[in-house]
């Protein structure tokens, strides 16, 4: 159980929560399983990417999309939250990568923000896409950004994959966002000579590899998203919709 130091709206429907972690460290790309409420409804924990970890304080950024996240948004600062973690693997780009592209769709920015806080330098550019300007999160936290929105209310109108294309050659991509975006990024990487890592999402039961509820088909066979991922190399996922 960790004391909640902050739990407040970030933009319409989005929240940032920071709490005292009972684990010592987390790496960008890893996630926590948060217990939502104290009753059995909702029953299962909710997976959330670690969006920051400093001095024992863990930060998550979340979107209120349903029962569990709505309850999460109601928890007051000073109360406690039960987090299991850190879980899963992490972003691990080669140390000699010359150009790193951080590609985030909507709430997918959360783990990229953490990576950037730890490692971001001159060679990293964030490509952030969303439906509207309300869905573009944390843009001021990145050194360099390219923004797109579907309605054109911020950045260029369209999908983030459009401006990405011209930057891909020789780049290393770290991407997180909706499945459709990740598949498009995966395909474009292949086409334009980039490599990288994709952080995937599926409904999870346990988050630590025992329920087999979140499997992904990959070139190397069936993998559990929670322990063999959530981060997978580009070109390895056999996409299914």
């Amino acid at each position: 159980m960790g004391k909640i130091l902050e739990n407040r709206p970030l933009a319409r429907g989005y929240y940032r929560m920071s709490f005292e972690a009972d684990f010592a460290e987390a790496r960008p790309g890893q996630f926590v399983m948060l217990r939502v409420g104290l009753t059995h409804d909702p029953l299962l924990r909710r997976p959330m990417s670690v969006a920051g970890f400093e001095n024992g304080v863990c930060t998550v950024i979340y979107r209120s999309v349903g029962k569990g996240t709505a309850i999460l948004a109601e928890i007051r600062e000073g109360e406690t939250v039960n987090a299991l973690g850190p879980l899963g693997n992490w972003f691990d780009p080669p140390s000699d990568a010359k150009k790193i592209l951080l590609v985030g769709g909507g709430i997918g920015v959360a783990p990229l923000r953490f990576w950037h806080r730890r490692n971001g330098g001159k060679n990293a550019v964030a490509y952030i896409g969303g439906a509207t300007k309300e869905d573009i999160l944390c843009k001021e936290e990145f050194a360099q950004t390219v923004i797109t929105t579907i309605d054109g209310s911020a950045g260029t109108r369209g999908l983030i994959t459009a401006p990405l294309v011209s930057a891909l050659e020789g780049a290393y991509v770290l991407a997180c966002g909706p499945k459709g975006m990740l598949k498009a990024v995966d395909d474009l990487c292949k086409e334009y000579g980039a490599t990288g890592e994709l952080s995937l999402e599926e409904r999870m039961g346990c988050g630590f590899g025992v329920c087999l509820g979140c499997v992904v088909d990959t070139a190397a066979g069936k993998k559990r998203l929670c322990v063999d991922g959530p981060v997978f190399k580009t070109g390895s996922v056999q996409w299914q919709f």
């Binding site: 909702p42 029953l43 299962l44 599926e202 409904r203 039961g205 329920c211 087999l212 509820g213 979140c214 499997v215 069936k222 299914q240």
Partner: peptide, 9 residues
């Protein structure tokens, strides 16, 4: 095992 999605709450 079976295709996804495999669980729901």
């Amino acid at each position: 095992g079976n295709p996804m999605p495999r669980i729901c709450e």
